[in-house]
Design a protein around this nucleic acid. Structure first.
Lengths: 193, 193
DNA sequence: GACAGTATACCGACCGGTGTGGTTACTTTC
DNA sequence: GAAAGTAACCACACCGGTCGGTATACTGTC
């Protein structure tokens, strides 16, 4: 988990993160990453072993950054109820995507890697399932009926926004998702009548 | 549009379609396609000019197949109202995805190609916007208020299902989307009270 | 003396794409 | 109805470039 990185290792991971996200994993070669990090390819392979493992490290790093961003946003938005927490998550998505243009790095990676046994796949699926479990936990806290179904639907809106933003050129996708989520929560049956 | 294909051309397009969808566009080389179509690489280039143009032809072909599938499904499901047409579209999605495992070929292509000026990009964006316009048209027919907003939300559910099915390993994604769409339509305000 | 790093050269495999030359089969023209 | 033309195809060899990854040798530092 908390494997300490050498200075050069940190630079490599930072360079890989921006390049992989901005230009795509397959497009970016290891030479380009090494050059951007001002490091020799030897050092890159000493630190990360292979491109595949560097990809996995990139996604783990991106996942950490995403979580930190969410924590920060939740402090900022200070939601009072569990429903508000969910809506804050959708609100945070708009800010996260602002000026990104390439959508979700995890979805992109999943498509680009394709192979189900790729070392980075667990990170990708894990990220999505964490989002779902967060929705479900908040739904349960809010006393919603069938929190599993509600979480599924919220995840659909979440992922739909990410992909429509990128693929369908729907610039307001996250706002639409936020409105849909708000209506969904408002109309959802609760356990205590 | 209706450029007639030679026998070999047809075989090439068929081979490219399955290989591109099943293994990814970047992964599959032109040699593999030529071999699968039992054709020389020369013939492939005589027919399609470049890999990029073959990719565009693949997506146009896939779009045609998708439309034919939808027409067929709409006849089969024989929806009576405009709402039922929308629900039939979501129902068709389940059948379309059954045994596919790789999700939406257009989303995948959009991620794999990345370059916004790629000749295949208009086909991708066009496919998504066609879906949205279809939702909007049916919403308008059904006398729904704000059909644009409704279409946006339906598209989000649609795309969310496609991507969650593949990326989040959510096997029942299309059924969830169908239920969500049904509830959304049922609760949506209409123009005539 | 172990570790992190630089510099550079190299590897085999594969990639998209081209060029040459030859074969079949159908159609046009005198 | 034979010759000429043409479109579709095959076989095969070849190109420059890029890819992920390795090897070797040397430097600085705790």
């Amino acid at each position: 988990m908390a494997d300490r990185l050498t200075p050069a290792g940190t630079r490599i991971l930072a360079a890989a993160s921006t390049l992989f996200y901005e230009q795509g994993i397959r497009t970016v070669g290891v030479d380009a990453i090494a050059a951007a990090a001002e490091v020799t390819k030897k050092t890159l392979y000493d630190r990360f072993g292979s491109k595949d493992r560097l990809i996995a490290a990139y996604l783990e790093h991106r996942n950490r950054v995403w979580h930190e961003f969410l924590d920060e946003q939740l402090v900022l938005r200070a939601p009072q109820t569990a429903e508000d927490v969910v809506l804050a998550l959708f609100g945070a998505l708009t800010d996260w995507l602002a000026g990104s243009r390439n959508g979700c790095g995890f979805i992109n990676a999943s498509v680009e890697l394709a192979a189900p046994d790729h070392p980075a796949m667990p990170v990708i699926v894990g990220q999505k399932q964490w989002m779902r479990s967060e929705f479900e936990a908040q739904a349960r806290l809010a006393g919603m009926a069938d929190p599993g179904e509600l979480a599924d639907r919220l995840l659909l809106l979440h992922e739909g926004a990410l992909v429509s933003y990128r693929v369908a050129a729907m610039t307001n996708a996250t706002e639409v998702a936020a409105r849909a989520a708000a209506d969904l929560l408002a109309g959802w049956p609760r356990l205590d009548g």
